[in-house]
Amino acid sequence: MGDVLAIAEQRDGRIRPVANEVVTVAASVAEGFGGTAHAVLLGGAGVGEHAGDLGGFGAEVVHVGEDPALEGHLPETHAAVIAEVVRSHGYTVVLFGATALGKDLAPRVAARIDAPLASDVTRVETEGDRVVGVRPIYGGKALARVGFEASPAVLSLRPNAFGTNGSQAAGRIEPFTPTIPEGVRTRIVDFQAAQSGSVDVDEASVIVSGGRGMKGAEHWSLLEDLRGALGPGTALGASRAVVDAGWRPHGEQVGQTGKTVAPRLYFAVGISGAIQHLAGMRTSQTIVAINKDPDAPIFAVADYGIVGDAFDVLPGLTAEIAALRAEG
């Protein structure tokens, strides 16, 4: 046995990039066990159209459950259906993406199947027939290596911490008829979209964050321009000082009491680098700091720094990056 199940997240019927990452990890864990990787994709009618693409990341089988009740994201409903898939196939490892949805769903599934859960894992390994995860704790001040005394083991994976490994393979699609639980006592009554088209800070591959050094909400257009120059996949972030001042919404806050992120590239502009901010972004691949104080602690974690006034540096930086991208 030793089969691994990846929960593939979709939004508005489209498979999200994080699903490819979770399937990639599932395939490598399955290989370690000599088992196979499966994926499960749930949604409304037609969601399975591109499910075979997950095979390109290593899913040999993609279970597709379509039902109008799965179109929205009522977590109770999704959790019940996923638990049923896990039980009926007997997986040894179940993997989620640690996105907002995944973090809400994984504990409900874990409780249903009575399995321990390690959340927001940044590394996964196999040791013989065991899976081991590494997860940051105490705001990233320590890394815990964790093992499981139960099967299945459930893990949620921090987006962008693993990467993908694609091929041309296609997965075998196995449609199933989900059993929709009755008597769900949660109703989604409204959704107020923030800015349309904006990327979520949790999953962005590039983040432009501003701190109190930006001096006021009215100066955010400078950061928006930089985001625009960096292209799609770029999100705005903020320090808590900025959120507390009401300049930006809490959804953008990075840090111990905000989002934990691991983008390819993180810009910290006018952010001092308090320990609670670092807790949210220190696992970013490349960190750039712009701060007028050469002794700001953010420079201790930054790969590259510019000492200077953000109001001078940002327009130049935006122009230079826009020019680079225009070259192609």
Binding site: A144, G147, E149, T283, I287, V301, G305
Partner: peptide, 18 residues
């Protein structure tokens, strides 16, 4: 049934540069 096997300090980030 979820057990910590070891704690490590996070890797120091390589010394950055101004």
């Amino acid at each position: 049934r979820l057990t910590v096997e070891r704690l490590d300090y996070p890797p120091e980030r390589a010394q950055g540069r101004i």
